[in-house]
Design a binder for these strands. Structure first.
Length: 613
RNA sequence: GCGCCCGUAGCUCAGCUGGAUAGAGCGUCUGCCUCCGAAGCAGAAGGUCGUGCGUUCGAACCGCACCGGGCGCACCA
């Protein structure tokens, strides 16, 4: 019963036989082998040889043995002999079953970076493989401000959206705001009691932070009442807070407020409107700083009842069953997911019921070929159940639903805990990053004034933060050390941004004459030049691969490789002071290509660039 | 108890559908700014890829078992 996977692969894995960057000698090898071995045309991929091999590319004959049914050394020998006579090839050497190929520089640069449109356009999938994709991410609760965990979610969702768009998909970014429920009422009830009409303006703080303060206050008040309750009734000492929620005065009052909200009580609704407005205004500032734009917004207050009708429908069709106590459940044993209640015995819906409803709503509203949820990995089981239920309801598109599960962000001290005050606030974190970035800029400028210091701080600070979150696998439970892990050196966003800025600087200094005519690639050939060009050539395939497996980290790590290759090139090969005008021209062209790839790649991760930093 | 994820250098992490002597950054040590901005470059040291079997011409990667860590298995969201 692995239908979802099958659908996933069908939709998203690019056809590997299509070479984005075409090396003609590879195709010639393919034709040669077909002629010799009964017309078989197997896919031939080029790989990167170990540096000590002094080769540019390598063909691995081990992988060809199976389709051709010929021993690897035999095939390798045939290929080597063939390539030794090929016009593009400078040398072809046989090593075990590997054929190490050194290309003539003219051919190497022509086929890797010669065609700018092909290089950058290589990211785009052919039209028939493009899809309409709905990406839901962020999905915040409107009871407190966002923290580092949300930042990872936001960054992943935003980058995934941009990445899929870079691959040619039509992506709709969706946010489902959880703006109702008992947790929202907690902030409301304490505000009602202790707020004294305070507003974000009067308090001088963002609305989400203000409301969050009252959420914290609720917890304090509740724990105070809980302690008093346990003191008065020692037999309750062993019970936990959740069990005794309704035994406390404030818990009872909060529950009553939720009921009043559901019945449309005007006063409760008005307070709710006001406080939610504050929070959402605050969220919008946070999103703006991250550069996030949603195409579509859903409010849970509008959608939370949707699933209920669907349950009734499924009940009549026998998908769901009713228990003696009135609760409705579905049997997911065939998917090894047990049983799942979808309607409580009192007829109210549970979390998954709402999700069924909103999933159908999104499907009907936006007609995507595929839905993706960016949600933490603790909900893996929930989504397995959700997708199984959708399948059982007969929705074929459920096979194209996917939960992008990401791991937690832990601190050196362990998990973030609001009660212990170890939560890293998103807005504070942004401030610190920008401050750090400004200091770094100023440090390098000495006493001189730095132009656009604020802008530089924003681009570099946010770039460092996003890159740090994106360079690790989404599913990795990652460590965040506030004091040490924000770096501007080494494997970082600013390292990539720095390469971009340095190229920009070079291009500024070059005169118009330096760009005259067409680059003659045959004058290049230094190892650093070749490594850079061969690296750039992988851009398109990397974007497609990263999009296919929904993994921005592939692209982030690729950009580090490119930036590193550029830095090496840059120290070893003078550009503006190249030995000959022809070399200067060609190296400038290589710089332009590198800049284009870095820009396109950072764009696909939603990380900004600066022409000077 | 059952299920999912993770154990790779002192630390944080890569390792592309199994392929050549396992990589990067940080940290430590050593060089390089009269030469396109040193947020850089070059080099050194540092690993029984958790353990053991198995599959394979070949395993960090696939299979099984075990050890260690995390997360799930609600009429919570």
């Amino acid at each position: 019963m692995d239908i979802p996977r099958a659908g996933f692969i069908f939709l998203f894995l690019p056809n590997r036989s299509r070479n984005v960057m075409k090396y003609p000698f590879v195709q010639d090898v393919q034709i040669m082998l077909a002629e010799r071995h009964g017309g078989i045309r197997a896919e031939i991929t080029v790989e990167q040889p170990p540096p000590e091999m002094k080769a540019d590319l390598t063909i691995n004959a081990f992988k060809l043995a199976k389709p051709y049914r010929v021993a690897p050394p035999v095939l390798a020998a045939e290929i080597t002999e063939f390539l030794q006579g090929h016009a593009d090839v400078e040398a072809a050497e046989l090593a075990k079953a590997f054929v190490n190929v050194r290309l003539k520089p003219g051919a190497l640069f022509r086929d890797s970076v010669g065609d700018a449109a092909a290089l950058l356009g290589g990211a785009l999938l052919p039209a028939e493989q493009r899809r309409r994709v709905l990406v839901e991410f962020s999905a915040p609760n409107t009871n407190k401000p966002q923290h580092l965990g949300h930042v990872r979610n936001n960054t992943l969702g935003q980058a995934l959206t941009a990445l899929l768009r870079a691959a040619g998909h039509d992506v709709v970014a969706v946010n489902l705001i959880n703006d109702r429920g008992i947790h929202i009422c907690k902030s409301m009830i304490t505000y009602q009691r202790f707020g004294n009409g305070e507003t974000p303006e009067s308090a001088g703080k963002k609305g989400d932070h203000l409301v969050g303060d009252y959420y914290v206050k609720f917890d304090q008040e509740f724990r105070r009442q809980l302690a008093a309750l346990k003191a008065a009734r020692p037999e309750l000492a062993e019970k936990d807070g959740d069990e005794l929620f309704l035994e406390t005065e404030i818990g009872r009052a909060t529950q009553d407020m939720l009921l009043a909200w559901e019945q449309g009580d005007p006063a409760v609704r008005a307070l709710w409107q006001t406080m939610n407005g504050w929070v959402i205004a605050g969220f919008n500032q946070t999103y703006a700083r991250m550069g996030i734009v949603f195409d579509k917004l859903y409010l849970e207050s509008n959608t939370y009842t949707l699933g209920r009708d669907l349950i009734q429908d499924g009940l009549t069709r026998g998908v769901f069953q009713k228990r003696a106590d009135g609760a409705v459940f579905i049997d997911l044993e065939s998917d090894k997911l047990g049983q799942k209640v979808v309607l409580r015995s009192d007829g109210t819906s549970v979390y998954i019921t709402q999700d069924i409803g909103t999933t159908l709503l999104k499907q009907n509203d936006l007609r995507p070929d595929r839905q993706i949820w960016v949600v933490g990995d603790e909900q893996i089981h929930h989504f397995k159940q959700l997708f199984a239920i959708l399948r059982k309801l007969g929705h074929a598109w459920a096979a194209d639903c996917h939960h992008l599960a990401y791991g937690m962000v832990n601190l050196p001290t362990g998990k973030m805990k609001s009660r212990e005050g170890t939560v890293v606030d998103a807005d504070d974190l942004f401030d610190e990053m920008e401050q750090l970035a400004r200091e770094e800029c100023q440090k390098r400028a000495g006493d001189a004034a730095v132009a656009n210091l604020g802008e530089r701080g924003r681009v570099l600070g946010m770039g460092a933060l996003k890159f740090m979150l994106l360079k690790v696998n989404a599913k990795t439970t990652m460590m965040f050390d506030p004091n040490a892990s924000i770096q501007f050196e080494g494997d970082t966003g600013p390292y990539v941004q720095y390469a971009y800025a340095r190229i920009s600087s070079i291009l500024r200094k070059a005169g118009p004459d330096d760009f005259a005519g067409i680059a003659d690639w045959s004058v290049l050939g230094a190892p650093e030049e070749k490594a850079l060009a061969l690296g750039l050539a992988k851009f398109g395939q990397t974007v497609q691969d990263a999009g296919a497996v929904l993994e921005p980290s592939l692209l982030a790590n690729y950009l580090l490789d490119v930036a590193r290759a550029f830095s090496r090139f840059f120290t070893e090969c003078p550009v503006l002071k190249a030995p000959t005008p022809a070399q200067k021209r060609a190296r400038l062209e290589l710089c332009v290509r590198t800049r284009q790839v870095l820009k396109a790649g950072l764009d696909a991760l939603t990380i900004g660039t600066l022409d000077a930093m």
